[in-house]
């Protein structure tokens, strides 16, 4: 653990924690949609497993967010009773599954980022953040191993599979830039020594994805254009549908216990 840095306002810290929790939650939701529909039984198992890890991580982050907020909201209130504009996940996480290749490419781009971020968070000045990061980091390293491996095998597989993986990369790439664009929230957590700056993670992330793409015989898109907005609550149309699905029971039967 690092020595404490500047004091951070609760609402800013809360916002930053939602970014962690919501990204895990929304990505976990997407991955769980594969259940029973994947190309091969091993993948049904693996995808359920990854979704389960992500939901587990979302619970830890959202519980901590609720604690920091101090208004009595827990993981379920935060997951089920906020509307899309209060969600703080990456736009990349909410992109539809597409074919299996798109799902794996989305997973790889996020895993490579999460793995690095969590490693840095393991020395966070906030002990609670560090604890979650160590736990989640072990799981994400495992996910990254798998998603990188699949990107390579599908990229360097048949001509059809390479074409599909290249198309997946091109359609998802413009959503990857959002991970490295810091804002005032990030500045505050950096000053409080809670987290590293997002910009600082980019170089190592690039070296990871470059190495994998080379082995996968895929070409990284030239464009630097980045869709942004997810981290501040401006989402794509997809998130509303995810929430309509996810929150249905809590919304239809307010106050019920399950």
């Amino acid at each position: 653990m690092t020595e404490p840095g500047d004091k951070i306002a609760n609402d800013v810290f809360f916002d930053w924690l939602l970014r962690r929790g919501d990204t895990a939650l929304v990505l976990g939701h997407r991955v769980s949609e594969w259940c029973g529909h994947s190309p091969v039984l091993e993948e049904d198992i693996a995808l359920a497993n990854i979704a389960l890890d992500l939901i587990g991580q979302a619970r830890l982050w959202l519980s901590l967010a609720g604690e920091v907020e101090g208004k009595g909201r827990g993981e379920n209130e935060l997951a089920y009773l906020r509307d899309a504009w209060d969600f703080r996940n990456l736009l990349l996480a909410e992109q539809p599954n597409g074919d299996f290749g798109q799902t794996m490419m989305r997973q790889f781009l996020i895993d490579a980022y999460q793995s690095q971020l969590l490693k840095a968070l393991a020395t966070s000045a906030d002990n609670r953040v560090a604890e979650i990061a160590v736990k989640a980091g072990k799981e994400v390293d495992y996910h990254l191993d798998r998603s990188a491996d699949l990107v390579i095998r599908l990229g360097d597989g048949t001509s059809e599979s390479r074409q599909r993986m290249q198309a997946a990369l091109e359609s998802l790439w413009p959503y990857s830039g959002e991970m490295f664009k810091g804002d005032a929230v990030d500045q505050a957590v950096v000053a409080a020594k809670i987290a590293p700056s997002p910009e600082g993670l980019r170089t190592e992330w690039l070296s990871t994805v470059d190495a994998v793409f080379t082995e996968a015989t895929l070409s990284k898109p030239e464009t630097d254009f980045a869709h942004t907005g997810g981290l501040t609550g401006r989402h794509t149309e997809h998130l509303g549908h995810i929430l309509a699905d996810m929150q249905f029971l809590q919304r239809a039967y307010p106050g019920a216990t399950w």
Binding site: S115, D141, Y142, D145, A148, D149, I152, T208, A211
Partner: peptide
């Protein structure tokens, strides 16, 4: 056990 980064197949 893995100590991080991609260890591949």
């Amino acid at each position: 056990s893995k100590t991080g980064r991609i260890s591949r197949l």
